[in-house]
Simulated scan of single mutants.
Amino acid sequence: MITGAHTILYAEDAEAARAFFRDVLGLAHVDAHDGWLIFKSPPAELAVHPAAAPDSGRAELYLMCDDLAAAMDDLHSKGVEFTSEVTNAGWGMLTMLKVPGAGEIGLYQPRHATAYDLP
């Protein structure tokens, strides 16, 4: 039986990225060994989009929120750098933010039906 999903974010500076998820986003975590932190993810869902090679099999990470403007205000007050303007993607209001040492991830307020709270 499947018990969970493990997401990997590759980072040029893993310590900086781990500090961001720990200190800025405040995600609970365990120390697997010697500072190798594994974070508790927020409730999650998985979408499968069509793609041709070489994108087939590629994964992206988007955090979701109920109020994008409020989430951005909170994160901005913690020093988070947003790398894009808010756009209406149809399926939600979207922005991108910088993870120190690890590039960008998305943050959006969904307008689609969500699956993360299904039983």
Rank of each mutant, 00 (worst) to 15 (best):
58 R>D: 02
48 V>I: 05
65 C>F: 06
101 G>V: 02
101 G>P: 03
55 D>F: 08
48 V>G: 02
26 G>H: 10
50 P>I: 01
119 P>K: 04
32 A>Q: 13
108 Y>N: 12
82 F>A: 00
23 D>P: 07
30 V>R: 07
59 A>M: 08
5 A>V: 09
8 I>P: 02
70 A>C: 12
111 R>M: 15
58 R>M: 03
48 V>H: 01
38 I>N: 02
33 H>I: 13
81 E>W: 07
69 A>S: 10
20 F>P: 03
91 W>D: 15
59 A>T: 02
87 T>N: 03
86 V>G: 05
98 K>C: 11
44 A>P: 01
115 A>D: 13
98 K>M: 12
86 V>K: 05
28 A>V: 09
108 Y>V: 09
86 V>E: 06
48 V>W: 01
25 L>V: 11
25 L>K: 06
108 Y>R: 04
97 L>D: 00
102 A>G: 15
30 V>N: 07
47 A>N: 13
69 A>F: 09
87 T>E: 15
55 D>Y: 09
116 Y>T: 04
63 L>G: 13
113 A>S: 14
94 L>H: 11
29 H>S: 14
29 H>I: 05
97 L>I: 12
3 T>C: 03
41 S>T: 04
73 D>Q: 03
103 G>L: 10
85 E>R: 10
56 S>Y: 01
18 R>I: 08
60 E>S: 13
103 G>R: 06
